[in-house]
Design a protein around this nucleic acid. Sequence first.
DNA 1: GACACTGTACCGGCTGGACGGTACGGTGCG
DNA 2: CGCACCGTACCGTCCAGCCGGTACAGTGTC
Lengths: 214, 214
Amino acid sequence: MRRQAAKISAVTRSTREELLRAAVRVVATDGLPKLTLATVARVAGVSKGGLLYHFPTKDALIRALIETFIAEWDRAMALEHARDAEPSKPGRWLRAYVRASFAEFDPDDMLTLGLALGDMAGFLAALAVSPELLGLIREAYERWHRLLASDGLGEATATAIRFAADGIYFAEGFGLAPPTGPTRRGVRDLILSWIDLAAGAADPGHASGTRQAC
Amino acid sequence: MRRQAAKISAVTRSTREELLRAAVRVVATDGLPKLTLATVARVAGVSKGGLLYHFPTKDALIRALIETFIAEWDRAMALEHARDAEPSKPGRWLRAYVRASFAEFDPDDMLTLGLALGDMAGFLAALAVSPELLGLIREAYERWHRLLASDGLGEATATAIRFAADGIYFAEGFGLAPPTGPTRRGVRDLILSWIDLAAGAADPGHASGTRQAC
DNA sequence: GACACTGTACCGGCTGGACGGTACGGTGCG
DNA sequence: CGCACCGTACCGTCCAGCCGGTACAGTGTC
């Protein structure tokens, strides 16, 4: 039964993924209270029994949501890291983090480009159903924090930049006065300029740090 | 019944406030799923009937939570605004917003100094129970955004600073790698320095903006 | 190539328990 | 006595999880 795994998963993946996608869609459109097994199953076009076959418990469903989006985020960040225009300049991971946060996403494809509402869904579901699952998200954040803090620009800079980048995420996910269009790009560029500022201060080729050097 | 409001509230405030405090405590310690009328009543030392006397429905309880904390936030921000050391310098409301976000709070007194977990409680409860109540929070954010955007430093700066300030709030509320001690102060000072940077760029008395002016 | 057997994928009904809300009864204070 | 305030018992609903059952695709066996 072990060697059959690859073939079987190739068959079942679509249903499993459809269920996860349905869960995200339910949270995004109808809100958290409607995230019930019956609703998710109906939206996914599966019966409740079918859902429970893939996810034996609601916790398992939400856990899968969270794990999927953490993995997607890692992927998106690694991609931006590889794309960096000035790899030698300090703050490469910070730039990747900011760019990944501000990446536009296809609303139709929330799962493979897990952002905003997508990631929010797992996040919120964890809070609402079993706060223990928040541990998964906390661990991921600790990991990201360590990565950013050792990016050469100090822990305070890394944290402040992370906060600013997370902002777009929370603002859009919760609808808290999110910026749009040119302002959105302006916010991103401004945050990136803060990274450059710290990189300039850290780089011996520039001024030594505080602005009174001017 | 209108003119009795003052007298009645003077009598009931302690019980009412105790109930709100209990709701926050329940969310903070046991998590959202435990936020039931029975639990809140028990923690507050009141019976369920007593709770329902003050808040005829669960929505009403959560609405009161949200309204209380929005009012507290307004108060905290106005206080920091009045305290500003350099009132003539642009970005006064932005500084107030950041300082209020980073204000330390007494964990024992979450209600009167509504922050972090306190405000989170209403926030989360709204999401989990009746997403329509999010409208209250959204309105408040729109209002704050308008205030900050018209602070003289442009909308992009206002938004980016708001994001960074909200970060400490979400990080501590959800436990997402929050900074502590000196790093926490460093993050706050760094964000404040970003405001100064923008203020310097906006102020004709300083260099025109980008750092190549050095 | 008919047959029994096995594991996967999914279905639909059911139930036990929890929770929000109601009805009503009691108590103390003015 | 009346009213604000609080307690208790109860009801209707909703939901997570379980269970018996179905369809079917392989797989070996003779």
